[in-house]
Design a protein around this nucleic acid. Structure first.
Length: 836
RNA sequence: GCCGGGGUGGCGAAAUCGGUAAACGCAGGGGACUUAAAAUCCCCCGGGCUUAGGCCCUUGCGGGUUCAACUCCCGCCCCCGGCACCA
């Protein structure tokens, strides 16, 4: 034992002591040399927090603790674990908060970061503070801008017009999430749509790879599925509908049919549509263009022009969210124009309607009201032809439709395709039309290109210069970073352009190519760009001259384990994968996928309800830590429920883990030399086995239960522990409660940090039970139990069972027809009734 | 509507290659120790019967498979999270 007198457990003292010791000894810090030559490197990553003014939320602590437990376990089992942390501090939330409080973000963020840092140190994470990242630091965003330029040079960044939500009262662009029921979330003003030129990253180029690679990733299933849905691959065809020249219809349907009989003209203008149901093309009785479709003007007849213009204006004014409400009744206007159904050769009317979205497929659809519910509703409203072209067994072409039939069946009214099942008809019809160049098979993706422009202040300026003569020129890499200037008036205004556009001395610059007067891009980039590569930067923060050190990156990446919230299942994780793939294809990294393993943690609620500031039921971690200590909080959070499912924080419950640590302290401090009790030793080895198996699978709650159970048996009846019984227990507890474990370890007279390779090994022989209790059932009902040697034979078990009075009574009621024996577990007699 | 996740004691939850449902913990009750309290230790703690031995019921609801179902299959209901006119 150490010379320290046995004192009672004081979390505050123990935790302060060890946090200081780790800091002083650099226990968790990596030098350049450490990073270059690690033994069994393990990159343990958690999603970095956004440093709000409120401080760390228990949700953050929950996530970080869960990740830290994993990291500490890996370290105890012999890995060199790199566990960095940082701050995702740019973005609209900080900016809005700063506006509201009247504090400049450049003042606000550092104080938030300082507070977060203090809190993060207090929870005892194994963070390497020498490799911290702050996305608002020019030394970091210099490389965020560098990434933009690499993508620009690779043709993966382009500038184009795109619609945005605009609040005329707040005079700002809103994201879709900030639009509630068509109104601004802050002032309730109806939102409008504006069209602004913005920068996009062509993530759609990687859609197929982003989807296909998922199959090989060790990720939470729910996360993978969310990505699959988001990418939204659908197989179908592109069909072309030739536009009939004005007056073409007047000539009559017969003429049109004649045209169809020959080859349809391919040189006239056509409208392309994407469909997953090419088999229903014979039922396409009209066509719908999105109001924004470029061909709207061309197909509109003069007498319909006013109505079309009016409808388009209303649609354009509507915000993007309200427009996409499904419950809304379908509306539209006839353009007066016609096109030819490529299959039937019939002229069909062209409408515009806002239920067709410019953002998906080609922005135009062939409407098949007989087999698409949306088209059915629209056709019913406007009296358009509804034609059945698929019939289920027992139906025929004349079976009436009172809603769209979207099920399986065979084709009808489809000329020589009649009778062919839907699945076979799809390729057959595409082939047939492809022969006349009116169709081709096509895979479409739902995912859009990534708009990274923000008409805001608090972000890294997009490193682009516009020159009258040279056009769009990237800022030369040696001129990076383009520093975000300190601007006191950073409030957005009615112009819809970035606040930086008001700072002439900043945006006026020289063209890097010709030296002429030029103008900087005044938009900043999306926060998701900051976070799409931070994990690449962590191990290389010592390098000022490059974003990633090649050797170090090769050594540490990809990330071994990434833990975070499922709210980022789609955007953040997809963007990070995309950026990594793009960097891979440009030769900057040698892997395509950044995260080998990803696990989503669950959510913490409180007393059955979601925590929120407005409800005033937020757990303040500092208070809990003061009262019970970080170790208790860590264990309690991990004990609440399965880590991947979250848990219900109940204030009283913390007593359990708190008591556990007190008893652990007491037991270890008073432990004596001696020989372990055989029963306790058996339990010990069972516990080692369970905890060792359950930590890697994040089953922390049951692992902790096992530790408690073991401590209970060590202390049973008030007995004094033997040191050999509790030394391994201290190590098993260390990932969850690192401070007390260190303290007890040193009081046990051990040298150095406990987080060396000290994980105990379990001996299966010692874990074996010598006698077992076997449940005895008669006809599946429990009638007794018998105890016998482990692994006893069925004969022996039956013999013991028959001696049980209660069992015997039921056996006497009939004859045993069979007996099922599960060794060491259960014996079930199947008894036929005596009369039978 | 679609895609995930989930429904088990007063509460948080265990147990799913089908094998004694409720481990561990909270709250509650009783006891030991104590002048007292705290801490600690021991016992009880799903429901209904029963003098006892014991019996019956119970994992959202209804069916089914099986010697045996929280676990598998079919059909529903409810809650949470995400997406949502995606052609």
């Amino acid at each position: 034992m150490s010379t320290d007198p046995p004192t009672s457990y004081s979390p505050a003292k123990v935790e302060a002591k060890w946090q200081e010791t780790w800091e002083k000894q650099g226990t968790n810090r990596f030098t350049q040399d450490d990073l270059r030559a690690p033994d069994r490197p393990y990159y343990n990553l958690m999603m970095f927090p956004y440093p709000s003014a409120e401080g760390l939320h228990v949700g953050n602590i929950y996530a970080f603790t869960g990740a830290d437990v994993h990291g500490r376990f890996r370290r105890l089992t012999g890995h060199t674990v790199f566990e960095p942390i940082g701050f995702d501090a740019f973005g609209i939330h900080s900016e809005n908060f700063a506006l509201k409080q009247g504090i400049h973000p450049m003042d606000l963020i550092p104080s938030n970061v300082a507070n977060f840092t203090r809190q993060l140190r207090r929870i005892g994470g194994m963070f390497d503070w020498d490799h911290m990242v702050d996305t608002t630091d020019p030394a970091y965003y210099r490389w965020t801008q560098w990434i933009f330029i690499q993508l620009f040079k690779a043709g993966l960044a382009e500038r184009k017009e795109a619609p945005v939500n605009w609040c005329p009262s707040c005079m700002t662009v809103l994201s879709n999430e900030q639009v509630i029921a068509g109104a601004c979330e802050r002032c309730d003003t109806p939102v409008e749509q504006r069209t602004i030129a913005q920068w996009f990253f062509k993530i759609t180029k990687y859609a197929a790879k982003l989807l296909d690679n998922l199959a090989h990733l060790d990720w939470s299933d729910s996360t993978k599925k969310a990505q699959v849905n988001w990418i939204g691959r659908s197989e179908g065809a592109l069909l072309r509908f030739p536009i009939l020249p004005p007056g073409g219809v007047a000539a009559g349907v017969d003429d049109a049919m004649t045209v169809a009989a020959d080859a349809l003209p391919t040189d006239t203008d056509q409208i392309s549509v994407f469909t997953t149901r090419p088999d229903t093309v014979f039922g396409a009785t009209y066509m719908v263009l999105s109001p924004e479709h470029p061909l709207v003007d061309e197909v509109t007849a003069p007498e319909q022009a006013d109505a079309i213009r009016e409808y388009s204006e209303v649609a354009a004014k509507m915000d993007l969210v309200a427009r996409q409400k499904t419950e809304k009744a379908k509306t539209g206007v006839f353009t007066g124009g016609y096109c030819l159904n490529p299959a039937t050769g019939e002229p069909i009317p062209i409408w515009i309607a806002d239920y067709v979205l410019m953002g998906y497929g080609t922005g135009a659809i062939m409407a098949v009201p007989g087999h698409d519910q949306r088209d059915f509703e629209f056709a019913s409203t406007y009296g358009l032809t509804i034609r059945r072209v698929v019939a289920a067994p027992g139906e025929d072409a004349d079976t009436p439709l009172d809603e769209a039939y979207q099920g399986d069946g065979s084709l009808v009214k489809s000329e020589h395709f009649d009778g062919i099942p839907v699945a076979d008809a799809k390729p057959a019809i595409v082939d047939w039309l492809a022969g006349r160049k009116l169709a081709e098979a096509k895979v479409n993706f739902r995912i859009h290109d990534w708009c990274i422009s923000r008409q805001r202040y608090w972000g890294p300026p997009i490193p682009i210069i516009y020159c009258e003569d040279c056009g769009t020129v990237p800022v030369p890499e040696e001129d990076l970073p383009v520093v975000l200037p300190r601007v006191e008036d950073f409030k957005p205004d009615d112009s819809g352009v970035s606040p930086l556009a008001r700072v002439e001395e900043w945006y006026r610059t020289k063209c890097p190519e010709c030296g002429a007067v030029a103008r900087r891009e005044t938009d900043v980039s999306d926060t998701f760009l900051d976070s799409s590569w931070y994990f690449l930067r962590y191990p290389s923060t010592d390098s000022d001259d490059k974003p990633m050190d090649e050797d170090i990156t090769r050594t540490w990446l990809p990330v071994d384990c990434y833990i975070g919230g499922n709210e980022h299942a789609v955007l953040h994780l997809l963007y990070a994968r995309f950026i990594t793939m793009a960097l891979h294809d440009m030769g900057h990294v040698d892997f395509e996928e950044p995260f080998v393993r990803f696990r989503a943690h669950g959510l913490i609620i409180r007393e059955g309800a979601k925590m929120s500031k407005s409800k005033g039921n937020v757990v303040i971690p500092d208070q809990i830590i003061e009262q019970y200590g970080a170790d208790t909080l860590r264990i309690y959070l991990m004990f609440l429920g399965p880590f991947e499912e979250g848990g219900d924080y109940r204030d009283e419950g913390i007593q359990g883990p708190h008591g556990f640590l007190h008893r652990l302290w007491d037991t270890v401090i008073n432990a004596e030399d001696g020989t372990p009790d055989p029963d306790v030793e058996r339990k010990l080895h069972q516990t080692i086995a369970q905890v060792t198996a359950q930590i890697p699978t994040l089953q922390y709650n049951t692992a902790i239960a096992a530790l408690m159970e073991y401590l209970n048996s060590v202390r049973a009846g008030g007995r004094t522990a033997v040191r050999a019984e509790v030394e391994p227990l201290v190590v098993l507890t260390a990932p969850f409660a690192p401070h007390i474990a260190e303290e007890l370890w040193s009081r046990l007279g051990k040298d150095g940090t406990i987080f060396g390779q000290n994980w105990p090994e379990h001996d299966p022989e010692k874990a074996k039970e010598s006698s077992v209790e076997v449940a005895v059932q008669v006809n599946g009902k429990l009638r007794g139990t018998v105890r016998g040697p482990a692994g006893m034979s069925q004969e022996m078990a039956e013999e013991l069972a028959r001696k049980e009075e209660n069992v015997a009574r039921y056996l006497d009621e009939g004859t045993v027809t069979r007996a099922i024996y599960v060794p060491n577990r259960l014996l079930n007699f199947v008894v036929g009734s005596a009369d039978a």
